[in-house]
């Protein structure tokens, strides 16, 4: 039997993490959380989560950085905003989940070949390089990088898309190529300036 400590100790905290998250646009109201659990109740995906959204909110506020960034919860959030509209304290929970995903991606703390961050990464790369998303091409790339075998299971779907004229591996792109990359480089530059 493999046992695991479920109670957190003071030493597990990363002091300042909660403050840092709450300083991000959209995440400020977290300090007003009353732990009512409405978010967990309305979340259509909480049944699959290791920590419910309510627990994630408290873990963030209490500086348990490693627990939240390694949780499945942040990846299971499908951005439906049900929690955000129902929260009696006007906490933008979906935006906090986005912020946590960003931090997990930046720190590389997600399982290798885990499809959700891989999809996000391929998506942003395609936007930067071409300005537009060619959906079926993007998804094909994601499967090849994460689980080529699962791609076989999608062959039927691919064929149906082809039959209905909706499958294409061609890359759509904007005319002013290079403009997206310039834009993104400028955002990085401005953020560095702001940090300095």
């Amino acid at each position: 039997m493999k046992i695991k400590r479920t109670i957190k100790y003071e030493a597990d905290r990363v002091p300042g993490f909660g403050r840092e998250v709450m300083s991000v646009p959209g995440c400020e109201a977290l300090e007003h959380c009353i732990q009512c659990g409405t978010c967990s109740g309305v979340c259509p995906l909480s049944i699959y989560m290791d920590y419910t959204p309510r627990q994630v909110m408290e873990l963030v506020r209490s500086d348990f950085k490693h627990e939240v960034l390694r949780s499945h919860t942040i990846w299971l959030c499908a951005s439906c905003y049900a929690c955000t509209t129902e929260c009696p304290r006007q906490i933008r929970i979906t935006d906090i989940m986005y912020e946590l995903k960003q931090r997990a991606i930046k720190e590389g703390v997600y399982p290798p070949r885990f499809p959700i961050p891989v999809l996000a990464e391929e998506f942003t790369k395609m936007v930067r390089d071409h300005g537009r998303i060619s959906e079926t091409r993007l998804v094909t790339k994601m499967y090849l990088r994460t689980n080529p075998l699962a791609a076989l299971g999608m062959a039927g779907l691919g064929l149906n898309l082809l039959k209905t004229g909706r499958f294409s591996l061609k890359q759509d792109r904007i005319e002013h190529r290079g403009e997206m990359e310039k834009l993104m480089t400028a955002v990085d530059r401005e953020n560095r300036k702001a940090d300095a």
């Binding site: 991000v24 646009p25 959209g26 499908a78 951005s79 986005y98 912020e99 995903k101 960003q102 991606i105 961050p117 999809l119 996000a120 990464e121 998506f123 942003t124 395609m126 936007v127 300005g131 537009r132 998303i133 904007i174 005319e175 002013h176 997206m180 834009l183 993104m184 400028a186 955002v187 401005e190 953020n191």
Partner: peptide, 22 residues
């Protein structure tokens, strides 16, 4: 003319500033 991808939910998960700029 020459619109680009809005960024959708995926870009917000990677970088808020860039998502906003796109």
């Amino acid at each position: 003319e020459d619109w680009n991808c809005c960024g959708a939910t995926a870009y917000m998960a990677v970088d808020e500033g860039k998502a906003c700029a796109a």
